[in-house]
Write a protein that binds this DNA or RNA. Sequence first.
DNA 1: CGTCTATGTTGACATACGTCGAACCAGTGC
DNA 2: GCACTGGTTCGACGTATGTCAACATAGACG
Lengths: 120, 120
Amino acid sequence: MVLPLLEPADGQGVVPCCPPLTERPMTAAEAETAARMFKALGDPVRLRLFSAVASHEGGEACVCDISDVGVSQPTVSHHLKKLKEAGLLTSERRGTWVYYRVEPSVLAAMGKLLAMPAAA
Amino acid sequence: MVLPLLEPADGQGVVPCCPPLTERPMTAAEAETAARMFKALGDPVRLRLFSAVASHEGGEACVCDISDVGVSQPTVSHHLKKLKEAGLLTSERRGTWVYYRVEPSVLAAMGKLLAMPAAA
DNA sequence: CGTCTATGTTGACATACGTCGAACCAGTGC
DNA sequence: GCACTGGTTCGACGTATGTCAACATAGACG
């Protein structure tokens, strides 16, 4: 269920799931994997939540810090869960609060997917 | 209806709609705009079509060259339309065939959205 | 004009999605 | 143990989405 946008990824030695979009036509399997990530970011609320976590100090944030996006709290939780299932975020409970974190390696893999060919 | 992922964009002087995801929390408006793009790429079939066009010689391809993605022809047409509405592709009829093209500036804008901070 | 090929549009349908309120767990502190 | 606060899960509901078959449109070519 946990989408590996990238393989185990020890440290930063990221092994992206797929080549850059512009390198060659994606296979069905690659598209399936990558689309899950894009789909996860394809909702305004989720995008804001993700951006809030990603831009937060240390790449992690407490739910309480980012839940002000105009929807009910259960909805926030629902979206965070989706982002987690998409492999974009991880969560950890620390005492009263739950912290969500974005893995730098995931960000790197996403960036590579959209990398421009030198020319362009 | 035509989503400007970026402003007029004369040539390569792209003016992205939004800052990198990691720079600061996106505003509701920014998220709305950027999410439309991610959403468009959030379907495996569309992602394959987009990749097929983007990786094709000259950044453009005839529908007949890319419509082998496992769904019916109307469905292909439907998805191409969606990609067009999302501002990711443009189309042009040349004689019998219709060609779809990806704007390099759009690719660049997407890349910047996911750009990594120097560190990480 | 008529027909054939290449695409786009329409209508219908099953499924997925986003949202909320209510109920439910997890820690904290009294 | 009990109440309180922070979060998640559940059930329901309306809407959006992906898909196809059938039909419509655009050029090309006789």
